[in-house]
Design a protein around this nucleic acid. Sequence first.
DNA 1: GCCAACGTTGGC
DNA 2: GCCAACGTTGGC
Length: 160
Amino acid sequence: MQYWLVKSEPETYSISDLKREGVGRWDGIRNYQARNFLRQMKIGDAALFYHSSAGQGIGVAGLMTVASMTYPDPLQFNTKSPYYDPRATSAKPLWDAIDMQFVEAFPRVVTLPTLKADAALAGMRLLMPGNRLSVVPLTKRQFEHIVRLAQSVRKGKANG
DNA sequence: GCCAACGTTGGC
DNA sequence: GCCAACGTTGGC
């Protein structure tokens, strides 16, 4: 069992979109390091859904589980898609997608400032300066800590 | 295989 | 919309 944090701009695809779909495809990843992390995912792994570039709403918005193995991202073959990659062929695909199962939308986003202010999360890859990876691993401790933060938000104990 | 130019991410 | 960080590309 591994733990992950994956980013999406909510204007493009948000936790509510995933909630509506139940199982959604995580596609459009065009960075080798992120892709390689994707390939390490196993069915049943836990993942946090992070809303990036979201104004006041930047942060961890919910919870999901990995619902498939990776498979070739169909967008890389789609000339109409912004994620089209002319170098990819069906014999030699370059990019992978994976399916995610919705678990929970947090009642409130665990915001980036909250994450940054939390000593227990110092050293988290997400918070490293200049980190832009859209798929990052988390330790079990970090994962559980963030879920606990979300629960304390629910109970009104933190995050005003 | 170096490295400059370029593109993208993502917080602010 | 700006810009820092950093990955990727391509000329040599």
